[in-house]
Design a protein around this nucleic acid. Structure first.
Lengths: 245, 245
DNA sequence: CGAGGCCTTGACCCAGCTCAAATAAGGTGG
DNA sequence: CCACCTTATTTGAGCTGGGTCAAGGCCTCG
């Protein structure tokens, strides 16, 4: 099945760009300038956008679907560094170096996005220090988020890490109960959380018994968010609950 | 014993600032401006510079000694996020937010440093986008370094992580043999590498048997650096050997 | 010389990994 | 709509790296 590529107007592209937190501070005039060079793309699950360590001179803005950023070990194992969806973007790591990207990108659920040549961003950073500061803030957030991740991986058990993941999917943490839909394969979630698929499966079952989830395929019923939170975050240092993304 | 505080001249301070990679691009005139607001400090092993999550409005430039950046878990355990020495600096993470620092800082070997009010840096970033780009590069490097760290912690065994640490202490990797001096307590190294002191001790012994080290207290003789490298980096994805810092 | 901090060793345990195999779940062509 | 193939997911069994608890050993400094 072909995905219909809806050709966006310039205004449409600008609208997408405006939705991205990183770009929100930019003047509309600048975004129209970007839009002139922008390209739309649509890729199916499994497609590779660029390989790890490859040189890539484009900046990606997600419109829909899901993309994973990953690295490969010599053993052929793959570690998922991050997972992206709208309204976020990636490739900004390349802003500061001309070297290859430290990770690869691949589509894990049919996705559409807009790409922009990186030099436009670099120019803008040079020209407009407020934007530079925005990028700085973004990177800072990412770095802190990584620190948290390291901490979580040593302090939390597998079921707790899954709980943490589920909590991020719950929009409203004050609701008593929610039904969630896992947005991509469990194998990918497992890798994102730094565990084997088998461990993920078993840990999810444990979590189900522990805090009362109902699981049917990719849909997860959380009967008591508070309970999930206290189970999950009891080991964290971050002021409960840990905000992220 | 009191550490004599050698009062530096303005020129002396500027000289220190110039040695810091992050600041190297700055004009001498700007550094003299910083120097007017700079303060020197000297602290003994064990001193806390600031607590995790505290608000801190200073930027630290190391002159000598060692400082650890750390977080604490609810259980009272402590995770060492990073360890700093000259000619590096820390606190730049606060450039992008007015919130508390995501970590605390404590001296692990008697240290001296220069502190600068953070607002001076922020002003300079606003004024001078080239400097902004330099900070951006620094943060990018830090973030990639964190990604690598996550990878290392899942892919490498404890002895391999220690090997990696030792390799960073070897200046010249082409030399056949070197004698290293561990620069701070083994307990701190263990925490930095994400393992318990007991595990560190055992893993170091394993590494000794495996690649032929001679260990006497804090001094480590590496008889064959190549052997250490191949043992240590065999599990890494990064192009061997992994550069860092 | 004694106290306290640092480091090592021993014994034991368990979370998560590996290997292997059985089941589901989707998608495809007929 | 069904049979079939591929890809995801679950389950079982067994192993092990690293954590935990507890007990010395060692070195430094007052």
């Amino acid at each position: 099945m072909l995905i219909p590529i809806i050709k966006k107007t310039q205004a449409g592209i600008v609208q997408v760009l405006q939705s991205v937190p990183l770009l929100v501070s930019l003047d509309e005039r600048v975004l129209y300038h970007f839009a002139e060079y922008a390209q739309e793309a649509s890729e199916k699950k499994g497609a590779t956008l660029f390989a790890p360590d490859s040189v890539n001179d484009r900046f990606f803005v997600m419109c829909s679907g899901w993309v994973k950023l990953f690295r490969e070990t010599l053993g052929g194992d793959e570690a998922v560094v991050d997972i992206m969806t709208a309204p976020y973007c990636f490739g900004e790591i390349g802003l500061a170096s001309t070297e290859g990207m430290p990770y690869g990108a691949a589509v894990i659920e049919d996705a559409t996005f807009i790409t922009i040549p990186r030099f436009l961003l670099v120019e803008e950073v040079r020209r407009n220090s407020v934007f530079g500061l925005a990028v700085l803030q973004d990177l800072t957030r990412q770095k802190i988020s990584r620190d948290m991740e390291i901490e979580h991986r040593t302090v939390q058990t597998a079921p707790q890490r899954i709980g943490c993941f589920l909590l991020k999917l719950c929009g409203d943490r004050d609701a008593g109960a929610v039904t969630l839909h896992l947005p991509y394969d469990k194998t990918v979630i497992a890798s994102r959380l730094g565990m084997q698929p088998e461990t993920f499966s078993r840990a999810l079952s444990r979590l189900r018994d522990e805090v009362g989830l109902t699981i049917k395929g990719a849909s997860v019923d959380v009967s008591d968010i508070k309970k999930l939170m206290s189970y999950t975050c009891s080991a964290c240092s971050s002021s409960f609950p840990c905000e992220d993304h």
